[in-house]
Amino acid sequence: MAKLMYVTNVSLDGYIEDDRGDFNFGPGDDELFTVHTDLLRSVGTLLYGRRLYEAMAVWETEPALAAKSDLMADFASVWQAASKVVYSTTLADVSTADTRIERRFEPAAVRELKATASSDLTVGGANLAARAFQAGLVDECQLFIWPVVVGGGKPGLPTGLRADLELLDERRFRNGVIQLRYRTRGE
């Protein structure tokens, strides 16, 4: 069975965006970008909320982005190779290939997807990830913690829900980002 991983960037105080909706926490670096690309390379399906999908679709819809460097071209290629499922009640159409819209998040359908997938899946977008956590679908959580405190905004992890985690790995990057990789513990 494939794993469902929640992968996200968060501020040190746990937010994926500040109270103005900004999610640019500082300068990245090539090593961090390569790790994100390699992580994505292991994934066959991306489950997205609408806002994150619209932010990520540029990796297919704006070829000039990939033309900036070999690293960006590799990321764009890997992102485009994955299937995408966008959960939205408002999105009328998608702008990328191998992408479908689902109007409702159905835990049973995601369980079936995990059971039949030949490679792992990720869930992205804090609200969608919270629903996956609540349904007991998240197998692994990978947090990229940025060295910034934003003081409020959208939490990166679900509120009002307890999830016991087991630390599997940690990694420190030159720009001060720390990657923490956890497995969720079943009840």
Rank of each mutant, 00 (worst) to 15 (best):
E31Q: 08
A67E: 13
V110N: 01
S77W: 01
T34M: 02
R131I: 08
S119D: 08
V85S: 13
R50A: 06
D139L: 11
G49H: 11
T45L: 07
E106A: 11
F133N: 07
T122A: 09
V85Q: 13
E106Q: 06
L113Q: 15
A92H: 00
M56Y: 11
E140D: 02
G136I: 03
T116Q: 11
A55G: 10
E60H: 11
L52M: 10
D139E: 07
D120N: 12
D70Q: 15
V123G: 13
Q134N: 02
V150L: 04
L52H: 05
L40F: 04
S69E: 13
P155I: 00
I101T: 12
V86T: 05
I101D: 10
A135F: 01
E106K: 02
L143P: 03
G136D: 09
G151T: 01
A64W: 15
F75T: 15
Q80G: 07
W146A: 07
T122F: 10
G125C: 12
A132T: 00
G153E: 04
L52A: 06
L128D: 07
A117Y: 09
D38N: 11
A130N: 05
L71Y: 03
F75E: 15
I101Q: 11
D120Q: 06
A55V: 09
T96N: 06
G152E: 04
V58W: 08
A97P: 00
A117P: 10
R103C: 02
D93P: 02
A129V: 07
T37I: 01
A126H: 11
A97N: 04
E31N: 05
V86S: 10
T45N: 12
L65C: 12
S119H: 09
A129G: 09
D38C: 01
K154N: 02
G151W: 06
S88V: 04
